[in-house]
C-alpha cells in the first residue's frame, strides 16, 4: 500500500488490483426509491442502490450531500433525531424491509453495527468496552467474554498493543487506537454489516493507514459501508463507490470505474478535485 498523497494536485488513484469484482457477489442491501426527510426538509431523493455482500462500499460526496444520512438510515440511527421520517421507498436487508412495522430497531442494530466519525469509547476499561454489547445481551460466562475480547481485539488489530492493559480506561488510548477499539467493540457483537461514518477524519495519516488496513481484513467477514471525505481513501479501500450530490445518488459502480472513467460529468468534476 502506498502512502496516501495529500496534495490534491496530484490526484492519481491507486485502485487496488486485489479488488474483488462485483460479479458473483450476492446482493445484501437493496434500497429502492428511497426518500427521507428531516422535518419538512427532504434530505434524500429517490435513492436506488444495491450493495453487495462481503464487500466494501464507499459513499463519497461533498458535505451535506446526504451520504451520512443514508448511512444512518441503514441501522435506523436516525430514529433518534426528532422529526425524521421515511416518506417513500424501502431499505431491505436480506429482503427484509428494515423500516417495517414488525422490525425491532434494537435487533437491527445488533446486526448492523456502526463506527462513528469521532471515536467514542465509553469511559470504562478496554475490556468493559469490548464486552458492552454482549453484557447488554445478557452474556455472563467469563470464559466466553474473555474469548470474545481477545478475538475482537485481534480482529481489530489491537490485541498486541493493549493485551497488557485490558483493564485500563479506553480513554487512555491514542486516537487511532480508540477508533480501532470502537471497531473491535462493534465486531464483538458479530454484526453482518459495519457502517463507518468517516472513521478516519480525526486521525493522523499513520493511524488512518492502520484503520484502512483493518478494513481490508474485515471485509472477509463483514459487509462494510464507509462514508468518507477522502477520495484517496475511497479509492484505496472500497470495491464499489457511490457518489452523492445534493441528496441524490449521482453515480454508483465499481470503484475503478468511478475514479478512472466516471460516466457522469458531476462525478468527474468531484473526483478530479474541481469542487467539493
Amino acid at each position: 500500500m502506498d502512502t496516501p498523497s495529500a496534495t490534491p494536485a496530484s490526484r492519481t488513484f491507486n485502485v487496488p488490483a486485489t479488488a474483488t469484482s462485483a460479479e458473483g457477489a450476492q446482493t445484501l442491501i437493496e434500497i429502492d426509491n428511497f426518500d427521507f426527510y428531516y422535518g419538512a426538509k427532504q434530505a434524500l431523493f429517490d435513492i436506488n442502490i444495491r450493495i453487495a455482500d462481503k464487500r466494501v462500499t464507499a459513499f463519497i460526496g461533498p458535505s451535506g450531500c446526504g451520504k451520512s444520512t443514508l448511512l444512518r438510515c441503514l441501522n435506523r440511527m436516525n430514529d433518534l433525531i426528532d422529526g425524521t421520517s421515511v416518506k417513500r421507498g424501502s431499505v431491505k436487508i436480506r429482503s427484509i424491509d428494515i423500516n417495517g412495522r414488525d422490525v425491532d430497531s434494537i435487533e437491527l442494530r445488533k446486526r448492523v453495527g456502526m463506527v462513528f466519525q469521532k471515536s467514542n469509547p465509553f469511559p470504562k476499561s478496554i475490556y468493559e468496552n469490548i464486552i458492552y454489547g454482549l453484557r447488554i445481551q445478557g452474556v455472563k460466562s467469563k470464559s466466553r467474554l474473555d474469548e470474545v475480547v481477545e478475538k475482537s481485539l485481534r480482529g481489530a488489530a489491537l490485541w498486541d498493543e493493549v493485551k497488557d492493559r485490558l483493564h485500563e480506561s479506553g480513554l487512555g488510548l491514542s486516537g487511532g487506537q480508540q477508533q480501532r477499539l470502537c471497531i473491535a467493540r462493534t465486531i464483538a457483537v458479530e454484526p453482518e454489516v459495519i457502517l463507518m461514518d468517516e472513521p478516519c477524519s480525526a486521525l493522523d495519516p499513520i493511524a488512518t493507514a492502520k484503520v484502512e488496513e483493518l478494513i481490508h481484513e474485515l471485509k472477509k467477514q463483514y459487509t462494510i459501508i464507509i462514508v468518507t471525505h477522502s477520495m484517496q481513501q475511497a479509492a484505496r479501500c472500497s470495491d464499489q463507490t457511490a457518489f452523492f450530490y445534493m441528496g441524490k445518488l449521482i453515480e454508483f459502480g465499481e470503484t475503478r470505474d468511478i475514479f478512472m472513467n466516471p460516466k457522469n460529468p458531476q462525478t468527474e468534476a468531484y473526483v478530479s478535485g474541481r469542487f467539493g
Binding site: 436487508i93 436480506r94 429482503s95 427484509i96 428494515i98 414488525d102 422490525v103 425491532d104 435487533e107 437491527l108 446486526r111 453482518e192
Partner: peptide, 25 residues
C-alpha cells in the same frame, strides 16, 4: 409477531439468519 419469521423464511431468502423481527415481551 411470530408468523413473520415463518413468512420470511418461506420466501426462500436466507433471512431466517437475519432475524431482526420484534420478539420482545
Amino acid at each position: 409477531m411470530p408468523p413473520d419469521i415463518n413468512t420470511a423464511a418461506d420466501t426462500g431468502e436466507p433471512s431466517s439468519k437475519f432475524a431482526i423481527q420484534k420478539k420482545r415481551t
